[in-house]
Simulated assay, not measured.
Amino acid sequence: MCRSIKTLRPPMTPHVEDEDIRAAAVQYVRKVSGFHHPAAHNEAVFDQAVSAVAEATRRLLDGLEVRGPSGPE
């Protein structure tokens, strides 16, 4: 669906920054809403959705338990 969103979990991305999470959230909300830049009357709800997706993504990444090989060498 969102091909421009990169995998953020370790070991695929060893150092995930808040900016990485927010960028992925923006891409997701853009794809789902169909708006690259929302109109002024939709900006607040768009921004709220980005924040909610970013928060959920952070909780997901913080809760994942990665087992097995440490990834590509």
Rank of each mutant, 00 (worst) to 15 (best):
residue 21 I to Y: 07
residue 6 K to W: 04
residue 73 E to A: 15
residue 57 T to Q: 04
residue 47 D to Y: 09
residue 12 M to F: 05
residue 16 V to A: 09
residue 42 N to L: 15
residue 24 A to W: 03
residue 49 A to N: 13
residue 27 Q to A: 15
residue 45 V to Y: 12
residue 49 A to Y: 09
residue 24 A to Q: 03
residue 70 S to D: 07
residue 30 R to W: 02
residue 51 S to F: 09
residue 7 T to N: 05
residue 45 V to H: 13
residue 14 P to W: 12
residue 51 S to W: 07
residue 5 I to N: 03
residue 33 S to F: 12
residue 7 T to Y: 03
residue 44 A to R: 13
residue 63 G to H: 11
residue 69 P to V: 06
residue 8 L to D: 02
residue 22 R to V: 03
residue 60 L to E: 01
residue 62 D to E: 11
residue 8 L to V: 04
residue 9 R to S: 14
residue 19 E to K: 06
residue 18 D to P: 08
residue 22 R to D: 01
residue 71 G to Y: 13
residue 61 L to R: 06
residue 23 A to C: 03
residue 9 R to V: 13
residue 45 V to S: 14
residue 43 E to V: 02
residue 27 Q to K: 10
residue 71 G to P: 14
residue 15 H to Y: 15
residue 34 G to Y: 00
residue 36 H to T: 11
residue 2 C to G: 05
residue 66 V to T: 12
residue 71 G to S: 15
residue 70 S to W: 02
residue 73 E to S: 15
residue 11 P to F: 07
residue 11 P to Y: 08
residue 61 L to N: 04
residue 58 R to Q: 14
residue 26 V to L: 06
residue 73 E to R: 15
residue 47 D to P: 04
residue 62 D to Q: 11
residue 37 H to L: 12
residue 48 Q to V: 03
residue 56 A to I: 01
residue 7 T to K: 08
residue 33 S to A: 14
residue 56 A to L: 03
residue 2 C to Q: 08
residue 36 H to E: 12
residue 33 S to K: 11
residue 62 D to G: 08
residue 17 E to S: 09
residue 34 G to W: 00
residue 40 A to Q: 15
residue 51 S to R: 14
residue 21 I to D: 07
residue 43 E to R: 08
residue 16 V to P: 05
residue 10 P to M: 12
residue 24 A to N: 06
residue 43 E to K: 08
residue 1 M to I: 04
residue 67 R to V: 07
residue 34 G to C: 01
